[in-house]
Nucleic acid binder design. Structure first.
Lengths: 180, 180
DNA sequence: AGCGCTATTGGACCAAAGGACAGTGCCGCG
DNA sequence: CGCGGCACTGTCCTTTGGTCCAATAGCGCT
């Protein structure tokens, strides 16, 4: 196998992903492409994989994670996040009928390592998940049995760690990696 | 990330693949498992991936290939053969077309009775899309060349039509995380 | 022409979010 | 023991979001 060039495509949120890939292909027709998305979207990922990219991951992933992605792709593999994999599996109805519930025992703790949530403390993750489900601070407080004030503290901490400015951006990041 | 043990499971053709994996898991609960199949079967592969294996390939593959598989898995990836990946992508065509369909309605205001956006006016859709991308009212205003006041009006209208209480819920619906 | 719909905008007000400052208490570790 | 990390909480303030009233102008249809 010839050593291929590895090229990173950081998606511009305002343009269609496939057209950005097409533009990149003109410059690098034979390279292995890894797509970085600010707001990961499984639909985009599916389209991009169908178009032959080798990896699709969150642009906010840590450097170590991105290095891992690079290693996988260089070794000839594809980088598919857990959510997308689940989705691919779920959309294969015959596979589902064979699994007989085994898929439901997928271990969440073994989630892929470029998950931005992995940088958060346990409590922060709980708060982030709640917010990502659409809860207000008051609702999160009720759900977790803490004060609204504490929720705000955690939310602010999550923003800092994930480098987002508000809950809306948080939702986009968290839900880009997870399936409801 | 700690270096995990890599275990190869060479499938016995006479026993169900999943039960063989279960047996192996008892001995090696924390290892990364690569499955070798004498007669590769995509259905089996799907089941095994759902059950958490990291690789599935032909037992008659060359040593070089198997080494490649090992490298990918060690680097944290999944080894999915090309045919399986194509099958997974192909089997998601309905899902893909649904997504694309939704995208088309966003772009072309095509009517789709299952798409919550179809009940919105063109302008409302633009605002909703912008919000769903994470923009604040002020940003939406700038993007669309209108005042923040007008954005608020549209946003409020969108909330009413889609029966949501705030932008967070709107994002969940527009981005497909919640039913309208 | 009249009507309904849409896009646009304003004023006013309150709720919620976000952030900067502060603090306490618990736990694990060196 | 001292320290850092974490969870929890408070006060205070600003900004943003959301809602209720109102209005005008343009367009398409009957």
């Amino acid at each position: 196998m010839p050593v291929a060039t590895l090229v990173w495509l950081h998606l511009d949120d305002d343009l269609p992903a496939l057209s950005q890939l097409a533009g990149l292909r003109k410059l690098h027709p034979d390279s292995l492409v890894i797509v970085l998305a600010n707001q990961p979207d499984d639909g985009d990922a599916l389209s991009l994989f169908s178009a032959g990219v080798s990896g699709y991951c969150n642009a906010h992933a840590t450097v170590a994670n991105l290095r891992q992605v690079a290693n996988v792709v260089k070794a000839g593999g594809l980088w598919i996040g857990e959510t997308l994999m689940k989705r691919l599996l779920a959309s294969t109805q015959s596979a589902l009928s064979r699994i007989s519930g085994a898929a439901l025992s997928l271990d969440e703790a073994a989630s892929d390592s470029n998950d931005p949530m992995s940088t958060l403390t346990k409590r922060e993750q709980e708060v982030a998940r709640s917010v990502a489900n659409g809860s207000s601070n008051k609702e999160v407080a009720r759900e977790l049995g803490i004060t609204e004030r504490t929720v705000k503290a955690h939310v602010g901490s999550v923003f800092k760690k994930l480098n987002v400015r508000d809950r809306l951006q948080l939702v986009l990041i968290v839900n880009g990696r997870r399936q409801a």
